[in-house]
């Protein structure tokens, strides 16, 4: 346990970097999720198609490959990214592609009646999305968003492989200088676990905060069933 205490400042620095990467990556992820998710639902092929390609490419290849590509391959085009930039970019784009599907799914599964009511009130598509459809879709998006964020947090450990000095990177350094492998890795496993757990709590709190109330959701579901019966 000595190594952990002795190197606590280094671990602390690593933790701060991990948190920074998580927050920046998470913010980028949200922006990408809404941009790509909404573009995917657009009536215009010129928006729908590139969004589809982006989502499939970033979901279809490994995050690690993407990160390495941005860090090692991009310089061949004359673009040398700072390791932290490459790391945040890869994390945000990769998790954003997953979250875009969450946005798309939540909005596409909105009860048809809500859109019809908007049309009957003369609300145009942008207004419908902003005032009615997106606010209603948030509760449905929150649990999967929570999962994406926990994934993002865990995947920040990969940034150590492109020389960003995060928690995992610090642990590796301490391990190679002290050899106290068990103590160090147990410590950071617990730290990651606590962070994931806190994220889960945050998601649960947001869910409660944004819930349309259980009865409202039941109503929606009933309506969906009725629509299906009506369409059959």
């Amino acid at each position: 346990m000595n190594a952990v205490i002795e190197y606590a400042p280094l671990l602390w620095q690593g933790l701060l970097t991990t948190l920074t990467v998580t927050v920046l990556g998470g913010a980028l992820c949200l922006v990408v999720a809404f941009a790509a998710g909404l573009a995917r639902l657009s009536r215009h092929r010129i928006l729908r198609w590139p969004a589809g390609v982006f989502i499939e490419v970033f979901r279809g290849t490994s995050l690690l490959v993407q990160m390495f590509w941005l860090f090692f391959a991009l310089p061949f085009f004359g673009i040398q990214l700072h390791p932290l930039t490459a790391a945040v970019l890869a994390l945000g784009l990769n998790e954003g592609a997953y979250a875009a599907e969450v946005v798309r799914g939540a909005i596409a599964s909105r009860a048809k009646g809500q859109t019809e009511a908007c049309i009957a009130l003369g609300m145009e598509p942008a207004l419908r999305l902003r005032r009615i459809i997106i606010p209603q879709s948030i509760p449905a998006m929150l649990p999967p968003f929570g999962n994406v964020m926990v994934d993002l947090l865990k995947n920040t450990s990969l940034v150590s492989l492109v020389t960003v000095a995060d928690l995992t990177f610090s642990a590796q350094m301490i391990r190679s200088t002290t050899g106290q492998t068990t103590a160090i890795f147990t410590t950071i496993l617990v730290m990651y676990f606590v962070l994931s757990y806190l994220l889960t709590l945050l998601t649960a709190w947001l869910e409660k905060r944004f819930a349309l109330d259980r009865k409202a959701l039941t109503l929606q579901r009933k309506e969906n069933i009725l629509m299906k019966v009506g369409a059959a």
Binding site: R175, T181, T182, L189
Partner: peptide
């Protein structure tokens, strides 16, 4: 819950560096 809450990379390091000792 613990395995789901921690990074795969760190788990791999544990198996690779810790278990042999």
């Amino acid at each position: 819950v613990f395995v789901r809450g921690t990074p795969l990379l760190v788990q791999a390091y544990v198996a690779f560096f810790v278990l042999p000792s």
